[in-house]
Design a protein around this nucleic acid. Sequence first.
DNA 1: GCAAAAGTGTTAAGTGTACACCCATGC
DNA 2: GCATGGGTGTACACTTAACACTTTTGC
Lengths: 280, 280
Amino acid sequence: MPIGNVSERQQLPPDVGISVVILALGDPDGEVSALDQPNCHGEAHQSNSGTGQLWIPLVKRVKQPFFGEWALPGGKLQCGISLEQAAFSALDSTTDMHPRYLEQLYTFGDPSRSSGGLPMVSIVYWALVGATETKQYQEADNVQWFPVDALPKLAFDHNNIVEYALWRLRNRIEYSTIAARLVGEQFTLAQLRSVHEAVLGHPLDPANFRRRMLSSNELEDTGSTVVQGRSRPAVIYRYRANEQAVFRPEASLNVNAQTTNISESTDNSPHTSMTPLLKE
Amino acid sequence: MPIGNVSERQQLPPDVGISVVILALGDPDGEVSALDQPNCHGEAHQSNSGTGQLWIPLVKRVKQPFFGEWALPGGKLQCGISLEQAAFSALDSTTDMHPRYLEQLYTFGDPSRSSGGLPMVSIVYWALVGATETKQYQEADNVQWFPVDALPKLAFDHNNIVEYALWRLRNRIEYSTIAARLVGEQFTLAQLRSVHEAVLGHPLDPANFRRRMLSSNELEDTGSTVVQGRSRPAVIYRYRANEQAVFRPEASLNVNAQTTNISESTDNSPHTSMTPLLKE
DNA sequence: GCAAAAGTGTTAAGTGTACACCCATGC
DNA sequence: GCATGGGTGTACACTTAACACTTTTGC
């Protein structure tokens, strides 16, 4: 129970937290699909994930308000580290996941989201993780994955926040190869296409999708192929580490910031940065 | 002087502020230009603003840190009101201006921006104001307008923040008629074009610009015309209040929120909302 | 009439989309 | 061979960019 009356509580410094919407692609049966084992050149037979589904991990709240309800992973704003690093930490402490894409989404602070008059501000990041990484993850009692189209009623305004993250993903996916961050390190164009279809919610022409992706110059032929069904083998591509100059609002401030693609690196420490936002 | 040592200060709740980057279009000579008098149908001779310049108001800091230096208008985060309303208030208290466009820009929280170890988070909004409104504004000692390409060294990381706001404006202007918020209530296509040219930094084809703007269906013929030089009179347009459904992250929470164009209304209270973001 | 800017028309280049077709594989 | 999905070619619609042209005013 908060102390003081409402007007007194409104004088307190606001409660600032960091939350993260983590999006991953999974099979309809709840399993994740990936083509990411380094030893899959030419023999492995795998079932295509088909039109997958986006899943997000939620954590069960262990205190009031909204005790026992599901909420986005997050935590209090920690000092001495950047917001991006704080988002990493919040992520780490709850899900063990290392995102391949992380970007600030929005800062929510409407008074109606404050519970009991205590003002609350949430700086929300959104993250994409590859299908591989979800495999390594052991589900704990207080953490569970949900498909985005069948979320429970979440604590606070978190349903609204997830909606906004999905809206942003759908927009962003139309003018970038961001979807590659949702699949494994390596992937066929058909897999990448099925990710786009899952996010956009409608089928895409394979021929035109291929041309669009290849002409973007952000994909790289790995040289190896894979047989998916009983048809012609598909070439396996990887996301090319692109060093394009994009505007990162706080990049010039962060001395340690490097524009390295975290999925290319074995070091998943929050000191390395993502390569986000082509447009904003 | 802050109390306690560094590690103690880092335990304190972070200092959360709201700042606003206010952008307005002005003439090269420092005056603002507008075609906004309601009585300008067919006779008035006015000098075109040519390739104008973007100006922003800055306030002189009256306390440490950065005492006496120029900074973005802003204030502490107030409780009980939305972030958008807080941005309005911060704006009001320093500049008397009522923006026609207001949108959250980014939340800055890098530790390097903290002065003296006290952690600082700034939720930054950006605003566009019409040229008319700048006329009404009386410059005070501690508030001064600067052209964006000749800013002084600002307090904190505010130079960086302004850069980001300009980058966003340049992007946004390419797929919306947002520039109409920088001119007066009424404007010719040539004026609107010169705004685009000023923001983008390069000339645009008048014929193609005209067609692009008119086909967007966001402009409305006022029926009146104006003579700019010794050439054919130009039709005066206004920004059409469009009720398109766009995603506003916190819109569904705010019961009072209406998607009304504030420039169409005489009530400039922060309880009415803007119509922003076509894409994000 | 002449200059200048408003406004219209035309055309070539580029881009997105639909779809027919060939290719390589498993069965 | 036949079915299947990978991959290519191509025609058409549409958008964009360049620029010639007409219109309406002041001088």
